[in-house]
Design a protein around this nucleic acid. Structure first.
Length: 579
RNA sequence: CGGGGCGUAGCGCAGCCUGGUUAGCGCGCCUGCCUUGGGAGCAGGAGGUCGCAGGUUCGAAUCCUGCCGCCCCGACCA
C-alpha cells in the first residue's frame, strides 16, 4: 500500500466529540468517521483492523467445529412475536414497516432466526450437535451510544448458536466455546479475563463474559488473587464471614427514638450519634417493574441492582427519585427505616445479622436506635443484594479479591430450551420422541475488540497495535523522496517485504520527516523502517519497534529478511499461544 | 426518557452577554520559493446557507419561539 494513494486522513488535533482514548485515536488516525450518533464508516485502515479480528475469530470458530453462515439483517416481526421478544425487547429493537405494511425490525441478535432455521432444517438427533455462526453487522438502537466503536448502534458482531440433544451435550458445546474464546483473545494479543456473569435479557442459566482489562472499561470485575475465580460485580457472590455469623455478645437493646435534625445521610447520622456507619441500616426505595420496594443494606454498603433484579424476579429495577418516593409512600426521604415500613422489603443477608442497629424512624427528624432485625421488622425477601468490595473474601477459596475495570468483548450463554420451547423447535430422539433443542449462544463484539485493543495498548503518541491486529505489520518511511538512490532503496525494500508475505504501508509522501514519524506512531504500526540519512551515509536502515522504541540498524540489503523473520516469529508465537 | 452542555470553513476554536463595516484566528488544503531525522519558514490563495424554520428589528451569527443534530451523566449491552 502506497501511503500517498491511500485514504488515511490523520489529524493533529483531537476531535471534541471523543472522550475515551480509543475513540480519539481511531478518529485521529483516520480509521473511522462518524455518520450519525453511534454509526461509523470504517475507512480502509479501520476496516483492515476489524478484518484482522474477524479472521482470527473465523479461524478459531472453524477450528472448534462451528460452521459459518449469514443471516438477514432485516427480520419479520412475526418471529419476534413468537419468541415473545417483540414485547420484551423494548425500544432498543429498531422496528419499521415495509411498503406492504409488514412489521419488521433490524436484527440486534439472531436467536429467533437461527431457531427458525433449526426447526425447519434439523429433524434428527443424528444431525446434532450443530454450531452455526456468522460475522455480521448488528443494529441496536442504544439508549446512549458513546465512546466511538465501544458502544455504537451499528457494530460488527460474531454470533454463534449451538444445538444439542441434552444438557450434558450442551455443556460440552459451551466448554468448547469457552476454550475457543480463550484462544481467540490470546491470539489477539489482549490481556483479558473470563468472568462469571449475569445473563441479562438474553436469558438462560449460566454465562461467562470475556473482559479486556482496561481502566476505561464500563464493567467492574472481581478477581481472586489465590484461585482462578473471577466474576462481574453484578454477579459476584458475597459470602458472610464466619465471625459475622455469630455476632457480638452485645446486650440487646430496646428500640429508642432519637432526634436527628436535618440528618439524611448515613455518615452525618453516624457522626452525630458517635457510631461507625456500619451500625446503620440504609433504606432505599427502588421501583421494580414500577412497584416500590424498600431495599435494606448496611450503612457502608451499596446495593447491586442486578442482584436485586434477580432476587425480585423483576425485569427492570431502578432507584426511585425523591419525588417518586414521596408520591408512592408519603414518607420523608432520609428518614426511611424498616420498622413499621408500609412497603415490601428486601434485605441484604448481612442486615439480618446486625444487632442494635440505627435506622430511620419513618418520621421527619427522627431515627431509631436499638433496632433488631427479625424482632423489629421482617423483610419479605433476604439474600445477597449488595455490591462486593475488595475487603470481601473470594466466594470460591476465601482468598483476597481485587476489583478491576474491564471491557466486555465476548459473552457466552447456556440458553437451555428457552427459545426452542416457545418456538417449538424440536428434533426426534433415538426413541422417536420430539424434544426441544438445548441451545447455547456465543457473541463477540468484533469491532469493539479493536477499540478495546487500543484502550489497552496506546501511549501519548498514539496506538500501539498488538501485531496480530495491526492493519499492517510494517511501515517503510522514505525520508528522501527527492533522492533517486534513497527512493529506489525504499521501493526495493517495500517490494521485498511484500514478497516476504508481510503487509506493508510504504510512506512515499512528499512530507517532512517529522510528519512521517508522527503519523507512523499515531497509526500504531508495530514495526517502522526508516530509509533516510543513515542509508545515505552508511547504506543502513533503522528498524524500530513501536511498543518500546527498541531500534536496530541493519544494512539495507539484509533488512527485509531480518524483518520478515522477526514478524513471522512473533506472529507464530501469538498463534501457538492460541493453541 | 430524565439531567447538563454544544452547533460559526475539513478539524480545533473566538465573536453572541451589550444587534450595526467585506464574520475572525490556529491547524489542514491549493500555488510558488525555500527547507528536509520528530507535525519547518516566507509569500500568495481557495474555502462559510453562522444547524433548520419562523419571529422581533431599519438591520440578526448575536434577541425570542419551535424543530433538528451532536456530546456528557443515569438505565441497556457484543
Amino acid at each position: 500500500m502506497r501511503y500517498s494513494q491511500m485514504l488515511i486522513p490523520t489529524t493533529r488535533e483531537t476531535p471534541a466529540e471523543a472522550e475515551v482514548v480509543s475513540h480519539q485515536l481511531l478518529l485521529r488516525g483516520g480509521f473511522i468517521r462518524k455518520l450519525a450518533s453511534g454509526i461509523y464508516t470504517y475507512l480502509p485502515l479501520g476496516l483492515a483492523a476489524v478484518q484482522k479480528v474477524a479472521r482470527i475469530v473465523r479461524e478459531e470458530m472453524n477450528r472448534a467445529g462451528a460452521q459459518e453462515l449469514l443471516m438477514p439483517m432485516v427480520q419479520p416481526a412475526d418471529l419476534w412475536k413468537e419468541s415473545g421478544r417483540w414485547q420484551k425487547y423494548g425500544t432498543e429493537l429498531l422496528r419499521f414497516t415495509d411498503r406492504h405494511d409488514r412489521e419488521s425490525c433490524l436484527g440486534p441478535t439472531h436467536e429467533e432466526v437461527i431457531t427458525d432455521l433449526a426447526r425447519n432444517e434439523l429433524q434428527s438427533y443424528r444431525q446434532l450437535p450443530m454450531n452455526l455462526y456468522q460475522i455480521q453487522t448488528k443494529f441496536r438502537d442504544e439508549i446512549r451510544p458513546r465512546f466511538g466503536l465501544m458502544r455504537g448502534r451499528e457494530f460488527v458482531m460474531k454470533d454463534a448458536y449451538s444445538f444439542d440433544v441434552d444438557d450434558a451435550a450442551a455443556g460440552r458445546a459451551y466448554d468448547r466455546m469457552y476454550e475457543a474464546y480463550h484462544r481467540i483473545f490470546r491470539r489477539c494479543g489482549l490481556d483479558f479475563r473470563a468472568v462469571e456473569a449475569d445473563t441479562g435479557t438474553i436469558g438462560g442459566s449460566f454465562s461467562h463474559e470475556f473482559m479486556v482489562l482496561a481502566s476505561t472499561g464500563e464493567d467492574t470485575l472481581v478477581i481472586c488473587g489465590q484461585c482462578d475465580y473471577a466474576a462481574n460485580v453484578e454477579k459476584a457472590r458475597v459470602v458472610i464471614r464466619p465471625g459475622q455469623q455469630e455476632g457480638g455478645s452485645e446486650r440487646i437493646e430496646d428500640v429508642k427514638k432519637v432526634e436527628t435534625p436535618g440528618m439524611k445521610k448515613v455518615d452525618t447520622v453516624a457522626g452525630f450519634l458517635g457510631v461507625t456507619i456500619d451500625r446503620l441500616i440504609k433504606t432505599m426505595v427502588y421501583l421494580a417493574d414500577g412497584e416500590p420496594v424498600a431495599v435494606l443494606v448496611r450503612g457502608d454498603r451499596e446495593v447491586q441492582p442486578v442482584k436485586l433484579k434477580n432476587l425480585l424476579g423483576a425485569t427492570e429495577v431502578e432507584l426511585a427519585d425523591d419525588e417518586t418516593v414521596y408520591k408512592k409512600t408519603g414518607l420523608p426521604i432520609g428518614y426511611l427505616g424498616p420498622v413499621n415500613l408500609p412497603l415490601r422489603m428486601a434485605a441484604d443477608q448481612e442486615v439480618m445479622l446486625m444487632k442494635n442497629c440505627i435506622a430511620g424512624a419513618n418520621e421527619k427528624q427522627f431515627h431509631l436506635t436499638g433496632v433488631q432485625p427479625g424482632r423489629d421488622f421482617q423483610p419479605v425477601l433476604t439474600g445477597d443484594l449488595r455490591q462486593i468490595t475488595a475487603d470481601d473474601r473470594c466466594p470460591s477459596c476465601g482468598g483476597s479479591l481485587t476489583l478491576t475495570e474491564g471491557i466486555e468483548v465476548g459473552h457466552i450463554f447456556k440458553l437451555g430450551t428457552a427459545y426452542s420451547e416457545v418456538m417449538r423447535a424440536t428434533f426426534q430422539d433415538r426413541e422417536g420422541q420430539a424434544r426441544p433443542f438445548v441451545m447455547g449462544c456465543y457473541g463477540i463484539g468484533v469491532s469493539r475488540v479493536v477499540a478495546a485493543a487500543i484502550e489497552q495498548n496506546h501511549d501519548e503518541n498514539g496506538i500501539i497495535f498488538p501485531l496480530p491486529l495491526a492493519p499492517c505489520q510494517v511501515i517503510v518511511l522514505n525520508l528522501g523522496v527527492n533522492s533517486e538512490e534513497t527512493t529506489s532503496a525504499a521501493e526495493r525494500l517495500y517490494e521485498e517485504l511484500r514478497q516476504g508475505g508481510l503487509e506493508v504501508l510504504y510512506d512515499d509522501r512528499d512530507e517532512r520527516p517529522g510528519a512521517k514519524f508522527k503519523d507512523a506512531d499515531l497509526l500504531g504500526i508495530p514495526y517502522r523502517v526508516t530509509v533516510g540519512k543513515t542509508f545515505e551515509k552508511e547504506g543502513k536502515v533503522e528498524i524500530r519497534r513501536r511498543r518500546d522504541g527498541h531500534t536496530e540498524t541493519v544494512p539495507c540489503g539484509q533488512a527485509a529478511g531480518f524483518i520478515v523473520e522477526l514478524v513471522r516469529g512473533e506472529l507464530a508465537a501469538f498463534e501457538s499461544n492460541g493453541k
